[in-house]
């Protein structure tokens, strides 16, 4: 009996509940709409989910250390613009342009890390500043214009065994992140930094490098997401990816990440993205439903999940 209770408790964690709610929504959407359960829609859903999922993993890794990264949406727009400009205005090859934008992203992530660790800025403020700066920079560089390029569009249409390339990128990112978090020394340090910074430092761990590392990874994934967005929209736009940072944070939190640090994993972020995109996609398909309801529902689910989680923690804590 006691054992069974334990198993039930273990199974009924946030991620499983969130995942089950996604399954329920799928069944409901499958029954009530004709289009949901079609191959075309699933492929569309995967494409929609890919970008959110990738930055959701980035947000998770930062949140694990008790930080936050608000700059990722603007970073995507920035990458989006410079990638389009590099491809249109310079003779740079596609791989070279990709290397350049990823390098730029990582440097910006390092800057976030320096602000947080060395200048002791609260992560919220540091990345809020970065968010505003990058949005402005994207506008300045592009002079507010949208730059069209079709050079990358093949990638967004490409599929491997029926699954869009974009979704393969997400799968790859989630797997690598899981391996890093579970199997590497760096991963262990990320969790312990988030759980107790002083104890981590007193255990001889270079917390500076761990802090730099997480913000660089988050920005790197932001860069990847920026490239993915370019392949989908075939343009560089300074107004792209508005509020994406909030979607990313919502994914991580829906997937069980705690703002108190040290708790959460990449598969959780994946599931969080799945739920969110299911709602976005489903509300678009349901007839007579104003698509603005999507935001209301996602917000409400986010609040409910975390409230239930807190309630359960308080109960088991006693």
């Amino acid at each position: 009996m006691d054992n069974r209770e334990k198993i039930v408790k273990k199974l009924l964690n946030t991620q499983v509940v969130v995942f089950l709610s996604a399954v329920v929504m799928w069944i409901a959407l499958g029954v009530f709409t004709d289009e949901f359960a079609t191959l075309g829609n699933f492929q569309n859903l995967m494409k929609q989910m890919a970008i959110t999922g990738v930055i959701g993993v980035g947000a998770l890794i930062v949140i694990l250390t008790r930080g936050i990264d608000l700059s990722v949406g603007s970073l995507i727009a920035f990458v989006n613009v410079i990638l389009a400009m590099l491809l249109v205005n310079t003779g740079l090859s596609i791989p070279a342009a990709i290397v350049v934008v990823l390098a730029v992203s990582i440097c910006l992530g390092l800057l976030n890390g320096v602000m947080v660790y060395d200048f002791k800025l609260p992560p919220f403020i540091a990345t809020l500043g970065m968010m505003i700066v990058l949005r402005g920079a994207a506008q300045l560089i592009s002079h507010g214009h949208t730059i069209s390029t079709m050079k990358l569009s093949d990638f967004s249409w490409g599929k491997f065994i029926g699954i869009p390339y974009l979704f393969w990128v997400l799968i790859f990112v989630v797997l690598i992140a899981e391996i890093i978090l579970r199997r590497t020394v760096f991963g262990r340090y990320v969790y312990s930094l988030g759980s107790n910074e002083e104890a981590t430092r007193l255990s001889g761990i270079n917390t500076r490098m761990v802090t730099y590392g997480v913000y660089m990874i988050a920005a790197f994934l932001g860069g990847i997401a920026g490239i993915m967005l370019t392949t989908r929209t075939n343009q560089g736009s300074p107004t792209a990816a508005q509020m994406f940072e909030l979607d990313a944070i919502a994914c991580a939190v829906l997937g069980g990440a705690s703002f108190a640090g040290g708790e959460g994993n990449a598969i959780g972020s994946f599931i969080g993205a799945l739920v969110m995109i299911t709602i976005y996609n489903g509300c678009d398909l349901l007839p007579n439903v104003d698509s603005n309801w999507t935001k209301v529902i996602v917000g409400a689910i986010l609040i409910t999940t975390v409230a239930v989680d807190q309630f359960r923690k308080r109960r088991t804590g006693q």
């Binding site: 262990r188 759980s195 002083e198 104890a199 981590t200 255990s203 001889g204 761990i205």
Partner: peptide, 18 residues
């Protein structure tokens, strides 16, 4: 609790931290 241990993490993780 404040300086010695990462409380949310496992015994194994804490023992191996250093």
């Amino acid at each position: 609790r404040r300086q010695g241990l990462a409380l949310q993490l496992s015994v194994r993780h804490n023992i191996n931290l250093a």
